[in-house]
Nucleic acid binder design. Structure first.
Length: 771
DNA sequence: CGCGGCACTTAGAATTGCCAGG
DNA sequence: CCTGGCAATTCTAAGTGCCGCG
């Protein structure tokens, strides 16, 4: 086609200019871009986020080339799957009728039998819970309910002013803030030690809104103009104090408070959908606070204002009683729309986004759509071969649009990228496939592409990928001048057009289905490799490794916890200490059976890590620990004495007893000191026979293996979040299959909440189930 | 046909609860 | 028995995708 050359010029001048504009701000920084670092643009924009995702660069090995065979070879499994579950077709109860029936029953029973306050017998409760939507006929999904009743939403309590002595200070002097302004200042004060509060954008946005609220409320006794002069430490300390107070409350009191809270929530947390009791997910109106935007969100720190009933729309069955708005207030609107699943909605003031109250994850509505999601993904396996064949061919299509589409499909399929819709100026700069820009890909000949961009939630995606030759060529082509930084790679493609194309293969097929499909497919393949033997614990480790493979595919990350490094250090120390003790045992063995050492000197060699300095440190650790233990024990014993009515020891007596007991540690110290003289080669022989020493060594060996494994697992998991894929991407029937086939209790694989959410899967899949 | 609104899923952080190991 | 650390749960931000309107 003749258009191929000017095809390279982006279609929309306007969008190009826009993206350039966006780019300009940071252009001057761009010159010293270095290969193994976060691109400067990103660094500048979000030092914090980039830093937290430090795991990414360089170290990552390139992904295995997704050769046609490995990836595409999936033999199309014939439509067998659904027959395993009863879900398909079997009509147990006509939809709706079942619910209506049970609702009716409740009515009659209420009248006939004297029942307790909540109006139900145990039997009835069981009946309600026994409704198995997955065994009922599926409707088309546009009508979500026929009857719906609920109690509306729970508003957060009104603001409680701080005690008079707790004040923000300005320029060192306490400020009298109007209550409304004090509340906002308190929001910041409470977060003082958080990363947010240290973020200049957060500070600026907070301060602007704070000043506005202050002004509107009539101002303070001093003019507040500079954020730097504001001191929130008193507020912070006060909240901290409160928190501690709460923590130190007696168990009984805590329980009482919890019971009180539960009582208030009780009526809100359930609703009746088609007569069946269902749990409401988030009946609580979001409390006011400071907006915690992720990554470098331009609006982070802005005041999220209090939601009033007048802003809240209620959706409820026409037959049901409308919940009362709080005294003196009214709802924005009351609707009866049974094509939607929300119970209430309001608009949030920061981004104008709509918030909803939905049912909980274990509800029938959510369950059904979850089920449909996975069934749709399963269906993809019947088309995936065709799709892959087509996009591979179209990688060379003469039409630029098709080439871009094919390349995007490759990335979505192989790298599990998200669709990547358009984003606005007032949001964090994150991208997905279709919105990838010039600066997000670089090349390493002959065929490695380096992807480095921020995806959803500003999570960094960094991968050096060996790609199909044509993909490599295409991406280079998409970067050709006049394109430059800030320009979209896929300038002729957007999610709607991509999805429209996908519908040709399969109704309902969209970009996101590939993530679900590939995640579940990967899980199935990984599970398939696990040998059906060993302990439950070993099987769990293998299962988690499979889960981890999926999480890595989907780039599900988590920030390493603050304590991570410390706890890794602790485990490492523990391993060293065991090795040291093992060495001492081996030396005892050598003394007991000198011949052994002659025969196998390597066995008796000191571990390379156990340098003299390390040993000194180990001994020091041991001694300190022992001493601390004794000090604590003496004190505890003394407390006990008091508790049992005996007279407490005086401080002096305590000191004396401690000293006495510490002698044992000093003796131990002397033993080590003596052993050190022979470089620990001649420890005192404390075990009676060589055999017993060997037994002890074996025990230590086991502990070393276990602890090392535990450490590796911890490291491997430190940046990977397993739960997201478990909750959203891995067909739960795979987990159920694994549980049954490998006899691993489902409780070990799904938490209580997940078991409720995936009840449909637990009750419908068996050990032979296939995705 | 493009775009803003709407409804819903997906996501990591923050908070809470629990229990193993000192 | 206590409590630190981890797992579970809660919270709400940030995506996807579709639809209706001008």
């Amino acid at each position: 086609m003749s258009d191929s050359s000017d095809d390279d010029i982006p279609l929309s001048k306007r969008s190009q200019q826009e993206s350039r504009k966006r780019k300009l701000k940071v252009e001057k920084e761009e010159s010293d871009f270095s290969d193994d670092e976060v691109p400067l643009k990103i660094r500048g924009k979000k030092a914090a986020a980039a830093a937290k995702n430090k795991s990414a660069p360089v170290a990552k090995k390139p992904k295995a080339e997704p050769s046609d065979d490995s990836h595409v070879s999936t033999a199309p499994v014939k439509k067998n799957g659904a027959s395993n579950g009863k879900a398909n077709g079997k009509v147990k109860a006509e939809n709706g009728t079942a619910g209506a029936k049970s609702a009716k029953k409740r009515e009659t029973k209420k009248g006939a039998t004297p029942v307790d306050e909540d109006g139900k017998t145990e039997q009835e409760k069981e009946e309600e819970e026994a409704y198995k939507w997955w065994e009922a006929e599926q409707n088309d999904g546009t009508v979500k309910w026929t009857t719906l009743s609920h109690k509306g939403v729970l508003f957060p309590p009104p603001y409680e002013p701080l005690p008079k002595h707790v004040k923000m200070k300005y320029d060192g002097k306490p400020v009298d803030l109007p209550v409304a302004a004090e509340e906002v200042a308190g929001f910041f004060g409470a977060m003082l030690e958080s990363d947010h509060a240290k973020n200049p954008v957060f500070q600026k946005n907070f301060f602007n809104d704070f000043k506005a609220v202050l002004k509107k409320a009539g101002g303070a006794n001093v003019a507040i103009e500079s954020f730097e002069k504001c001191d929130f430490t008193d507020m912070f300390n006060y909240f901290e104090e409160k928190r501690l107070e709460k923590k130190n409350m007696s168990a009984a009191e805590k329980k009482r408070i919890k019971a009180e809270k539960d009582k208030i929530e009780e009526e809100y947390k359930v609703c009746y959908l088609d007569g069946r009791k269902e749990v409401v997910g988030n009946f609580r109106i979001e409390p006011p606070g400071l907006f915690r935007g992720r990554g470098s969100h331009p609006k982070t720190g802005k005041l999220k204002s209090r939601v009033m009933p007048e802003q809240v729309t209620i959706n409820i069955g026409a037959e049901a009683e409308v919940p009362k708005p709080p005294e003196g207030h009214e709802w924005a609107e009351v609707k009866h729309d049974n094509t939607v699943s929300w119970l209430a909605t309001w608009k949030e003031n920061i981004n104008g986004a709509t918030k909803y109250v939905f049912l909980a994850a274990n509800s029938s509505l959510k369950g059904m759509s979850d089920f449909k999601k996975f069934e749709k993904a399963r269906q993809l396996k019947n088309h995936i071969d065709d799709i892959r064949q087509d996009y591979r061919r179209e990688l060379k299509d003469e039409k630029m649009v098709n080439r871009q589409r094919a390349t995007a499909m490759y990335l979505i399929d192989v790298l599990a990228l998200r669709a990547g819709g358009e984003k606005g100026e007032d949001e964090a700069d994150t991208v997905g496939c279709c919105s990838l820009r010039y600066e997000h890909v670089t090349f390493k000949p002959p065929n490695i592409v380096v992807f480095d961009f921020l995806g959803k939630d500003s999570i960094r995606f960094y991968q050096e990928v060996k790609v199909d030759h044509q993909v490599y060529k295409n991406l280079k082509l998409f970067k050709r001048p006049p394109k430059r930084e800030g320009d979209e790679l896929f300038d002729r493609l957007d999610p709607p057009s991509l999805n429209k194309h996908l519908q040709n293969y399969m109704p309902g097929l969209t970009a996101k289905v590939f993530r679900t499909y590939n995640a579940s497919k990967t899980m199935q393949d990984q599970l398939g490799k696990i040998p059906n033997k060993g302990t439950v614990n070993e099987k769990m480790v293998a299962f988690n490794a499979a889960n981890r493979a999926v999480a890595i595919l989907c780039n599900h990350q988590r920030t390493v916890s603050k304590s991570h490094e410390q706890s890794v250090g602790k485990i490492e120390d523990k391993i060293l200490e065991i090795k040291f003790q093992r060495y001492r045992l081996k030396m005892q063995l050598a003394q007991l059976e000198p011949a052994r050492k002659k025969k196998d000197p390597a066995y008796f060699e000191r571990d390379a890590e156990l340098t003299d300095e390390v040993i000194d440190k180990i001994i020091d650790n041991i001694l300190t620990r022992e001493r601390e233990k004794i000090v604590k024990k003496v004190q505890r014993d003394n407390e006990k004495r008091a508790a049992e009515g005996e007279t407490k020891l005086s401080e002096k007596e305590v000191e004396k007893e401690t000293k006495e007991k510490l002698k044992a540690v000093s003796e131990l110290e002397a033993v080590y000191a003596k052993e050190k003289k022979s470089s620990f080669k001649m420890p005192e022989v404390t075990v009676s026979s060589a055999e017993k020493v060997e037994q002890q060594i074996e025990k230590l060996n086991e502990r070393i293996t276990n602890t090392t494994l535990q450490l590796k697992d911890k490291e491997d998991n430190s940046t990977v979040a397993l739960t997201t894929s478990k909750i959203n991407y891995i067909d739960p029937r795979l987990t159920v299959m694994f549980s049954k086939k490998y006899s691993v209790p489902i409780e070990k694989l799904f938490s209580k909440t997940l078991r409720e959410k995936f009840k449909w899967a637990i009750e419908s899949a068996d050990e032979k189930w296939v995705f």
